[in-house]
């Protein structure tokens, strides 16, 4: 890491325990080294935005963290356990505590919004009653301001609404960590701002920790406690938005210009 600063926007995170520790993570596709000894630590209650150019490996990074991709080597410690050694059953248990918001929303288009939200519960929360399940669905939808869409199909909703529903589905299991894959991509600036604000509100309400992949600088500024710059497979710089904005590093500067 070329730039490291101990100054955080929210100093409480300095003392927060690490919830995700990534060390010396390597992932390559053929001869293309996407992640090359990448290191990152996310603290409890903290929100880190990973910034990088298209194809830099940002999405690959969080897909390795959730176990959708297998890292070539390195350690990914999530909530105290190295997930690189996990089998499918252990990954399932971990995924109950870690939510993932997909770039394309990934709503099941053959199901209603209610069924979309019920889907994660059918496996993870098998012992809850129908009433409790309904309450959770309404609570999650209310959090994103879309309780009235419960019986609609995803195709009937706008892109921004679909993003909110996807976020509600992520929240349904009340995860401790949420991984966001480009949450504002493809949205107009106003909707993008609404989604960024919603991410901050959710983090404050549920005290979640987040890794957010983005190259939308407005979203980065709104949501980040710290920003990690991913370059050439490594964490080139990590600091608060304000500090990185003032950075003299030419590679970092190009993101903020």
């Amino acid at each position: 890491m070329d730039i490291v600063s101990a100054k955080y926007q929210n100093t409480a995170y300095q003392t927060g325990e690490p919830v995700i520790t990534i060390s010396k993570l390597k992932k390559q596709f053929g001869k293309n080294k996407v992640l090359d000894e990448f290191d990152l630590t996310l603290h409890k209650g903290e929100s880190i935005v990973v910034l990088g150019r298209s194809g830099a490996g940002k999405s690959v990074l969080i897909k390795c963290v959730i176990g959708l991709m297998q890292a070539d080597s390195g350690i990914i410690d999530v909530l105290g356990k190295d997930i690189t050694t996990f089998n499918h059953h252990e990954l399932d248990k971990m995924r109950m505590r870690v939510g993932f918001l997909f770039q394309s929303n990934a709503l099941y288009d053959s199901m209603t919004i209610r069924e979309n939200l019920e889907f994660p519960m059918r496996r993870h929360l098998t012992n809850i009653s129908a009433k409790e399940s309904e309450e959770r669905i309404i609570e999650a939808l209310t959090n994103v301001g879309l309780a009235h869409t419960v019986d609609m199909m995803p195709a009937e909703l706008s892109g921004g609404m679909q993003k909110r529903i996807a976020l509600a589905r992520t929240l349904i299991l009340k995860p401790e960590i949420i991984l966001y894959d480009e949450p504002t991509t493809g949205l107009d600036p106003i909707t993008g701002k609404e989604i960024s604000t919603l991410i901050v509100e959710i983090q404050e309400k549920y005290q979640t920790s987040s890794i957010i992949i983005s190259h939308d600088m407005k979203c980065v500024k709104t949501t980040a406690d710290r920003v990690a710059v991913l370059l050439n497979g490594k964490c080139h710089a990590i600091d608060t938005y304000d500090m990185l904005e003032k950075s003299e590093d030419t590679l970092v500067k190009q993101f903020f210009e």
Binding site: Y108, F119, P120
Partner: peptide, 12 residues
């Protein structure tokens, strides 16, 4: 559209 990945993440 990543729905299969979403299913995997949902524990199904």
């Amino acid at each position: 559209t990543e729905q299969i990945d979403a299913m995997d993440v949902s524990g199904t």
